[in-house]
């Protein structure tokens, strides 16, 4: 997890295109300036970043399903529940699955767990469009390699 670059996902553990599901891991850093403010003397992973981790996890699933032709952008967050605290150093397991594939949009359910215990979950809506430029696409392809994106689902890998 490189919070300064907003890269929350460390590793894709499992990605099943046919079942439209993904599992990733994300290690919350032990130390980060974010924890100096959130909160002083009581560091907690911010809920918005947990939501972002679910969004990025869902995003990789959608990129796989769209074979790296389109880029998903988060459009709506529903039923987001922060169930228990996430603290520095914890290893997150994030799961996402597709609820509905519409025309130009997709809805996913996602959840974050630590050691099998559910920490938060949400229903997310994404709009997706063809990659707006080659820079973004190249960046995403490089990041895909870094986090273990299965090359067989990357038509351009």
């Amino acid at each position: 997890m490189h919070l300064e670059y907003f890269n929350l996902i460390d590793r894709i553990v499992d990605l099943k295109s046919d079942e439209r599901t993904i599992t990733v891991e994300a290690q919350v850093p032990q130390e980060n300036t974010i924890f100096e403010g959130h909160f002083p003397g009581y560091p907690l992973m911010p809920g918005v970043l947990l939501i972002e981790s679910m969004a990025q996890t869902s995003g990789w699933l959608l990129i796989a399903l769209m074979k790296f032709e389109r880029m998903p952008f988060l459009a709506a967050v529903k039923e987001a529940k922060m169930r228990t605290f996430v603290t520095p150093g914890e290893l997150l397991t994030v799961n996402a699955s597709v609820v509905h594939e519409g025309s130009g949009f997709t809805i996913t359910d996602a959840k974050v767990s630590v050691a099998g215990k559910l920490k938060c979950n949400a229903t997310l809506t994404f709009r997706h469009v063809p990659f707006p430029n080659n820079d973004l696409r190249g960046h995403m392809e490089a990041m895909a390699k870094r986090i273990g994106f299965p090359q067989q689902v990357n038509a351009h890998g």
């Binding site: 459009a75 709506a76 509905h100 519409g102 949009f105 809805i107 809506t125 709009r127």
Partner: peptide
């Protein structure tokens, strides 16, 4: 357009 996605989802279903 964002609210219409919710409507489209419900209509699709």
């Amino acid at each position: 357009s964002l609210d219409f996605l919710d409507i489209a989802f419900a209509i699709d279903k």
